[in-house]
Amino acid sequence: MSTTGASKTLTPPDIAARKGNTPLVCLTAYTTPIARLVDPHCDVVLVGDSVGMVLHGLPSTLDVTLEMMIMHGQAVRRGLERALMVVDMPFGSYEEGPEQAFRNAARVMAETGCAAVKLEGGEAMAETIRFLAARGVPVMAHVGLTPQAVNIFGGYRVQGRGEDGERIRRDALAVAEADAFAVVLEKVPETLARRITGEIAIPTIGIGASPTCDGQVLVVDDMLGLFSDFRPKFVKRYAELGDAASSAITAYAHEVRERRFPAAEHVFGDVPATVKGGEAA
């Protein structure tokens, strides 16, 4: 259970107020069952556009649509009681300008019940963030490695090394000044993330950044070890569920082929013999 002790649904101001306090716990979720599992332990649950790669087998986040984000947002909403739900704005749904961003963000909020949206970009998105915040749309910003700009970066590379660190710092300052309530710092050097965290007034949420950030976020499938072929440096595997699932499926297939499953206890007789849990056995 998170240490905040709150039983009510958390809000963007609640998250903003955690600056410099107990670190924020954040994970992604894309389905109702996973949302129910993470909700008691997380302060923020992010319906990330990583869903395109994790659940839909897409090569990047660029093909994720607004409709996909809304569908998964609705599923996650049904599984949450306490955590703040944030939905990613997908590529192409906000970059055209503040009006487009507001129109699509308002739709996401109305159709999913989320309390905030997340969009990528720093200085270039400051005007849009300010526009949304002024119109009742809380925004979590995202700077550093922004996956929707992966083609610009030439891959999923660390951002902000050397002199390039000043660019990331300006981005973080810009989104904070534009009234974002928090900012994700992705795949940036530890010293830079530490400096930014100390300079801006809103919480920083790290992923491949620094333990001194005001919170941390991971893709839930990564930290659970559901994929054996994806092991980025910044992910700690808290379980190896992919291996466990593979072993279970292998055992199931073996038992079916040997006619060991279903066994007698898994089939129904012609006449109910007993009643277990209200169901005839």
Rank of each mutant, 00 (worst) to 15 (best):
R107V: 09
I207G: 01
E67G: 08
D164S: 14
A29R: 00
V256C: 11
A35V: 02
Y156T: 11
A239V: 05
V44Y: 04
A273C: 10
V76K: 00
R103H: 10
L46F: 01
T112F: 02
L66A: 01
G278T: 06
A253E: 13
S210C: 05
L119N: 05
V150A: 08
H72Y: 13
S60K: 06
A83V: 07
E96N: 13
G160H: 01
R260M: 13
V220C: 03
G144Y: 00
M71Q: 14
V86S: 08
P98Q: 09
R259I: 00
E95P: 08
R77K: 14
M68F: 02
V86F: 10
G160M: 03
V267S: 01
V275L: 13
A124D: 04
E67A: 15
V184D: 03
V76H: 06
A101T: 09
T28M: 02
L218M: 15
E166D: 14
G73Q: 09
A75D: 04
L173P: 00
Q216S: 11
G225S: 13
G5S: 09
A180C: 02
L62V: 07
L185K: 06
M68Y: 01
G162A: 10
A174V: 12
V108P: 07
G48Y: 10
A115M: 11
G162T: 06
A239K: 08
R135D: 06
T112D: 00
G97K: 12
L27P: 09
I196M: 07
D243S: 12
E186R: 02
Q159R: 13
F91H: 14
A251W: 09
R78F: 01
V275E: 12
G206L: 06
E265F: 10
P138T: 11
G206W: 06
I207F: 00
G165W: 03
L119K: 10
S50W: 08
G154P: 08
I15Q: 07
D222I: 00
R103F: 01
K19I: 12
R157N: 14
E127T: 07
V158T: 14
G242R: 05
I129V: 14
T250R: 13
G113M: 01
T28S: 15
V219Q: 05
R231L: 12
A182G: 06
N104I: 05
V158W: 00
V183N: 02
A176V: 06
L58R: 07
V137R: 03
T9A: 15
A239G: 10
D179I: 06
E255H: 12
D39L: 02
T191Q: 14
M140S: 12
L24W: 04
L55Q: 11
V184N: 02
V184R: 02
T31P: 02
E240I: 04
A182R: 05
I200D: 04
R157F: 11
